[in-house]
Design a protein around this nucleic acid. Structure first.
Length: 434
DNA sequence: TCTGGGGTCCTAGGACCC
DNA sequence: TCTGGGGTCCTAGGACCC
């Protein structure tokens, strides 16, 4: 009896993470509202319909790789009747909220890790069959939202990631895999290529493979000093996580954002400074709006420009401006962006991208006044509030600054030629902020 | 012809200070 | 022909994530 109690206590305190990951998320969203797409090869494209950023299993089977430019797979698309969609971030964001909302039913301790993934802390589910519970999560989300998901469970986040991946690909697992049972762990690690381990990117994968470490099990057994030397402290944490020692706790309330950025690639090169000014003003507007939504102000504004990075004469330049007083005022920020852009603009270039970064963020109620401040802060704050409120009610971009431009010929604007309908939201966005 | 966007963390090295 | 040493702060760049 006492033994039993002790055992329960032990089980209770063993950390157990579940990673719930939506399958081919953007494609699955499109399928919810267009069931005819089910069973067919489907891809979703990045901005300007440039690259494939989501692929159905059927599309993956055709050899369409993640991030491949569309012009390279035109034949594959035509010959196999692949359905192609522009990305529709308003729709995906909304579907994501529904999935996350559903997941809160299964545990109060959850970390929304990305638009299509969440970690759940299942440590406190005493004496429950994890496989059953994972299965229940999977079927409930699918029933309530129409989005298919996979569930991987293990003692650390890194292992849960591995479990999730195998849950997706293994027929036998059929979408749910519990690796808290060490019986299967070695085999699971063996089946995982080192490049598929969370935290091992292309660079490290190449390095590790060339040093005889090609799967997760070999990585787990690697020499600490060797890994530390090449991958630093992150590498050591990675080894520990693979060994079942949790180094990354659940983060329920994400830390305050430190920077925010808005940038777009243009469909065609742009030479004129005026047009670049318009684009930059639009991105500043969008960035400042983000700040105000989160009650933040920025202390540093960076503007950058670049030409086609796939060409020989590639040009990149950026300029950073320290603001006299932290702000989220659109007009003020546009002014600094203009000054900066003028300085880094080089005549005769075909620019492919402009971007802005807002750095050194802080809460808006802690603005440090400056002796030299010439702006009427309370007046500007009221104006911003009014603009946000109107744009919030009537659709983003109803009110915008003159410097964003009103001409119909705004060649910097992002194009979406294969967009599906806005099934769940009322207004399209002026700027498709993903 | 056509190649996305938005983030984070860590490290090395220089500037500066005592 | 020798020329301290250590701490802190900042920044650029590299690596990763989705």
């Amino acid at each position: 009896m006492i033994k039993e109690e002790f055992r329960n206590k032990m089980i209770k305190h063993l950390p157990t993470f579940a990673l719930v990951d939506c399958n081919n998320f953007y494609v699955s969203c499109e399928r919810v509202f267009n069931p005819q797409l089910i069973g067919k090869p489907v891809i979703v494209l990045s901005n300007n319909d440039g690259c494939a950023v989501a692929r159905s299993n059927e599309a993956k089977a055709l050899g369409i790789k993640m991030g491949v430019p569309v012009f390279q797979i035109r034949d594959t698309i035509r010959n196999n009747n692949v359905k192609v969609y522009s990305s529709n971030y308003a729709l995906y964001g909304d579907m994501s909220n529904r999935v996350m909302q559903t997941l809160t039913r299964f545990t109060p301790e959850m970390e929304v890790y990305s638009i299509d993934e969440a970690f759940l802390d299942l440590s406190n589910l005493n004496r429950i069959d994890l496989n059953d519970y994972g299965r229940k999560i999977k079927t409930t989300v699918e029933k309530w939202t129409g989005i298919p998901v996979s569930v991987g469970m293990a003692g650390t986040k890194t292992l849960a990631k591995i479990a999730n991946r195998l849950a997706k690909y293994s027929k036998k697992a059929n979408g749910v895999l519990d690796l808290t049972d060490v019986k299967y762990l070695d085999r699971a690690l063996e089946m995982t290529e080192v490049g598929d381990v969370w935290g091992v990117g292309r660079r490290y994968a190449k390095f590790l493979t060339s040093n005889g470490i090609s799967n997760a099990r070999q990585l787990r057994g690697a020499d600490d000093k060797f890994i530390q030397k090449k991958m630093g402290i992150v590498g050591i944490r990675l080894l520990n996580e693979l060994r079942g020692i949790s180094c990354y706790p659940l983060e329920q309330s994400p830390p305050r954002k430190q920077s925010t950025t808005v940038s777009r690639t243009f469909k065609h090169g742009i030479e004129s400074l005026d047009e670049l000014h318009e684009a930059a003003a639009a991105y500043v507007s969008s960035g400042a709006e983000k700040l105000r939504k989160e009650k933040l102000v920025a202390g540093v504004l960076i503007v950058y420009v670049m030409t086609n990075r796939f060409q020989e004469d590639y040009y990149y330049n950026s300029i950073s401006t320290n603001l006299p007083v932290r702000t989220s005022d659109t007009a003020e920020l546009i002014g600094y962006a203009r000054d900066g852009l003028r300085k880094i603009y080089k005549k005769g270039c075909q620019y492919k991208k402009v971007g802005i970064l807002l750095n050194d963020l802080g809460p808006e109620n802690e603005i440090q006044a400056s002796f030299f401040d010439t702006v009427d802060r309370s007046r500007s704050k009221k104006l911003m509030k009014a603009i946000d409120s109107i744009n919030g009610d009537m659709g983003s971009g109803v009110i915008q600054y003159g410097s964003v431009g009103l001409s119909h010929n705004q060649s910097w604007k992002t194009s979406f030629n294969q967009r599906s309908g806005s099934y769940t939201t009322h207004w399209d966005q002026l700027l498709e902020v993903g």
